[in-house]
Design a binder for these strands. Structure first.
Lengths: 202, 202, 202, 202
DNA sequence: GATGAATGAGCTTTCATTCAT
DNA sequence: GATGAATGAAAGCTCATTCAT
């Protein structure tokens, strides 16, 4: 797709830059076209509508994101290490691409509910990875049996997302990567089967 | 303010209803005026601009929210119990006011960056409460000394926020209150000084 | 309506002028607004859409047209004289208002089918007058009993319309009024009961 | 032209179908190209512009129309019978080709003034036939000397055209052919020299 | 203080036409 | 001759804000 339809990715990448630099509501189609080096009308040979561009941005980037994430995680064999790797990878990928971080954490959230729901649909691919890790941890005995997968997933995703958003809103002025291990530790404690003496005490 | 300028709160409350029922982008000033039972122009006797209405909505509602939260928490005397109370209270207040939940979790997030930053400013009042609890927990020895206050706060807030947003996006169809204790447990494990044998092992 | 909502008729009249002078497809809303001396947005306080302006132009003008036509016709007491008066009046009203003639004969016919059908709906008011005259003529014995009302109506309207359109397309450079009596004569022959000897001969 | 340049007629016929089925304003060049089974660009090897296609549609079809009409009429030897034959033929040709009827009666009239004037130019070929019949009728003594050729032609054409348009707008749901003789009768009365006693009486 | 009619800037999308292959 | 990807100009409508009454 990248090779055969160079303009498609060209427009996607232009959209990321334009949205990051101008903000969601100032990202006119004509600006994206100019940034991509094509005519306004050319956009509509590759995308049905402006909304389609925005969804495609998220789909393509999140697709790559998830793909790389899955590859990284495979190399680890415990749930704990998988989770550690995932957090590091998440922070690292967004640290590398500042524009994308701004777009996903701040700008695309300004979209209307319909678009947000489509984005959420795509996000599910990421949440499934989290669910798989948690589930695997429970099955291997690493995580306690009483762990609620949905709550654990919300805690992990909520914490990561809040951390990245805070970092972006602070103009990315500190290192995100440095936080990964601490966050991992904080998250993991509550999951451990090793805490079962406390579980019993409750 | 409430007594002397009844229309002020009338407009604020109208804004919450209109935004919740129509969505952020369909919440025109004229709709808010109609819902409030005043003329369009009257809005501008009480608010500088539409943005001012929205910030005021958040400020007023979050003000009440924080006030009630602080009162609730005072009655508890350990950090852990304070946190437990806070989560329950957070869930309970939003469960009681479905319109407000929609507005704060979904609609106001569609606003532009400038407004979002002002909202974040107001949110800090809430985050300070969290910081105080965490800090108190560390000082009392309940929480481990190595606990990073900022990370802990992001974990708490991120988890709560993600949980509420998921609940709202699922049309509030399950009980939020029922989740409070489990979330509290998951969060608190990582904070405990009792886990220090693991802390040492790292 | 004219007194109470001066801007409504102001915009209608502006639309007639702009369409006549620029053509249907060059009659942008902004041009109509400028001609009417109001802001673009003001148009939308009085009309739902551009199409609504165009239909309203036709409705208002045709309304006046029909009203005056009915008044004129009442003063005559035979079907033949009513028809004569109607043709003269039709030509006279369009001769007096050259812009309106261009708009109704040429420009509004360029509209899409949906609009054309709404225009036809309004036109029915005029066609009913024709039907009434023809019917009255049959009942009074002036016109032959075998006269098909629909065909007679189509002949009258078709002839008048074709005549006016030809006149407008020739830049209104000859007198339309002068043709009325001849056309009336041509039309009326076929209707006469007096021709019944021929009717029998067929 | 038909033999040597098969694509020319292919495109003309495609245009008739596309316009009839989609309407004038939805008949994009790309749709016509697709229907004709050629590339968009190919259109421009045979036609200067979109307007040129539309004029050519009218010219080709009206050319055939006039040709067949002239042949039909030659076989009759009185003006009255020629006219009768012409009306029947007119109705019959359009009844046979429903697409063409829609295109000529409704869709092409939505074109701009410039195109309409070119169409009128072509139409003159048809109007000349009418003029010839009327003139011949006057010379043979069938029609009265006082008959105004232009008025008579407008009456004939206006009546036929209005009748066909009404029929098309009613979805061609009744037989057009059945109306021919009645219309002919209505038209012809006014032309007759036989009515001259009435002419004198006026 | 209250009203609400009037303002006018701003943007997505379509489609006839071109031209390199 | 044939293709079809690329071009880019052009316009209806909304809505926050004002201000005369």
């Amino acid at each position: 797709m990248n090779e055969k339809r160079p303009k498609y990715m060209q427009i996607i990448d232009a959209a990321v830059i334009v949205i990051a630099e101008n903000g969601y509501h100032q990202a006119q189609v004509s600006k994206i076209a100019k940034q991509a080096g094509v005519a306004d009308g050319t956009i509509y040979l590759y995308f049905k509508s402006k909304e389609d561009i925005l969804i495609s941005v998220f789909r393509e980037k999140m697709g790559q994101f998830i793909e790389r994430m899955e590859k990284e995680i495979q190399s680890e064999h415990t749930a704990e290490k998988k989770l550690s790797r995932l957090i590091k990878q998440h922070f690292s990928l967004l640290s590398e691409n500042q524009h994308l971080a701004i777009v996903t954490q701040l700008e695309l959230r300004q979209s209307n509910l319909a678009l947000r729901q489509k984005i959420n649909e795509i996000l599910k691919g990421y949440l499934f990875i989290l669910d798989d890790i948690i589930q695997a941890g429970k099955e291997s005995g690493e995580f306690k049996q009483s762990l609620d997968v949905r709550l654990a997933r919300q805690m992990i995703f909520g914490t990561i997302d809040e951390t990245v958003t805070t970092w972006v809103m602070n103009d990315q002025k500190y290192s995100l990567d440095g936080l990964a291990e601490d966050i991992h530790q904080l998250l993991i404690y509550g999951f451990h089967a090793a805490n079962n003496q406390e579980e019993i005490l409750q």
